[in-house]
């Protein structure tokens, strides 16, 4: 019986220890979250046109703020896309990560209406397939619609049409999928 009492005491003490110890719970830095997408376009005269998507709560349920400049007709624009995580400090540049893992990422730019401006890839990964960070845009005639910007992780870059920007056969999982209103005037 004494032995038994001993056991109970020992365990009771163990339990108390378990319940009373508490580690510091720290907020987690979610570095890989993408909460800002910016497409910066420049014409030959260095005039800048920005398309912006900002989500203040990252993966949370909040509504994003979207802003896009009106683009001129029949103009050739050079530019790039930038992904940021401004929720951590210092701000994390996700574009650099995508660029580093270029073979495992590809952006797709799809206009919802037609006729529409044309966006072409202006960069390449280590295997010679496009990534889509650097782009070239021909705005064409007047347009009033949307541009869907998609970033696929681990796409099948060899799929039919994938290298020219058709994501039907691309597979992979979606890291970014946003809709930006576009007006060409």
């Amino acid at each position: 019986m004494n032995k038994l009492n001993g056991y109970i005491l020992l365990l009771g003490a163990g339990l108390m220890l378990l319940v009373s110890c508490k580690d510091d719970v720290k907020p987690v830095n979610e570095e890989e979250v993408i909460n800002e997408v910016t497409i910066r376009l420049k014409d030959d005269h260095n005039r800048e046109y920005n398309l912006e998507y900002r989500d203040a709560d990252g993966s949370g349920p909040g509504v994003p703020v979207i802003k896009s400049d009106t683009l001129p007709t029949n103009t050739n624009l050079q530019g790039n896309i930038s992904l940021l995580n401004t929720l951590v400090s210092p701000t994390e540049d996700i574009t650099a990560e995508v660029s580093e893992e270029g073979t495992a990422h590809q952006f797709f730019y799809v206009f919802t209406d037609s006729p529409a401006p044309v966006i072409q890839y202006a960069d390449m990964d280590a295997d010679g397939y496009p990534i889509g960070i650097e782009i070239q845009c021909n705005t064409g005639d007047a347009y009033d619609g949307s541009l869907r910007v998609v970033l696929r992780h681990q796409p099948n870059k060899k799929g039919t049409g994938v290298a020219t920007g058709d994501m039907t056969q691309a597979g992979g999982s979606t890291d970014v999928d946003i809709l930006l209103p576009i007006v060409v005037r």
Partner: peptide, 25 residues
């Protein structure tokens, strides 16, 4: 029966834990 339980999340995941830190008695 007595059950005591603690869940401690490793903070190096860089992802918000799906199960919070907790203790249960």
């Amino acid at each position: 029966n007595i059950l005591g339980q603690i869940n401690v999340n490793n903070p190096n995941t860089q992802r918000r834990p799906i199960i919070p830190y907790y203790n249960l008695f």
